[in-house]
Amino acid sequence: MKPRQAAWLFVAPALLAIAVFFVVPVAAALVMSGTDFDIYALADLRNVRFIWLDNYLQLLQRPLFWQALLNTLFFVVVGVPLSVAVSLVAALLLNSPLALFKGFHRTALFVPVVATLAAVAVTWRFLLHTRYGLLNYGLSSLGFSPIDWLGNPRWAMPAIMLLSVWKNFGYNMIILLAGLQAIPGEQYEAARLDGAGPLAVLRHITIPALGPMLLMVSILTMAAHFQLFAEPYMMTQGGPAQRTVTVLYLMYEEGFKWWSLGTGSAVAFVLFLFMFGFTVLQVTVSRRWGTA
């Protein structure tokens, strides 16, 4: 067999799988989002009508859609910086020459990343319980009054954010730590000789050096945040007052609870547009600031 033919044999299975189970469905989803494909259509394809952009237009008129969008954007806009900030702090601590037991600490801080989300979400649901949850117990011993984390519309999303930061900061921490370790020691040395304090070093040396990495980390984190689903599914089922219905949760409910696959596909494309738009925005902004 010639190398050229062999090459095709090597890549063909993977490309075929990606084509059949990814490319075709993406195209089909675009078509589907222009139809009223629903449970009747699952029973009999003659029950499908082509309705062009109607699904999208109807979404725009639905308060729940806007609520879902708002909830998701809130989670992204507040959650991503928070998550990256915690990751950065953790990475800086781990990178400090003064730190002890680095290996142990690194592993300990990373463990939530690999823990199954469904399992930790159930755990957190109980930790966040208004009366018997340890979080409120801790707060009350510090003198705060108990918060109805998952029952109060105002607190439900912040509670999920708390879980999400806890669960995910270790991931970015590892990446940023690698970035920190790549900064040459002479730079720090020079700064110290110039009499710069730790904060000045952070601002003028560490952050600029980490710039590209911070951008990448925040883009990845943002993509993940846009896809919030399992946490509200496990912990609040979209409530209270639909404050934790995210775009993906809406897609799940439309598509797989009410079996409006057409509407669900439209929601999925809206999500894609937003993710894409935000990524482009982020890259453009950081180019302008010269960090990337």
Binding site: H129, T130, D148, G151, G239, P240
Partner: peptide, 8 residues
């Protein structure tokens, strides 16, 4: 003004 989840 509560849901069953709040009542537990």
């Amino acid at each position: 003004p509560v849901t069953n989840n709040d009542v537990a």
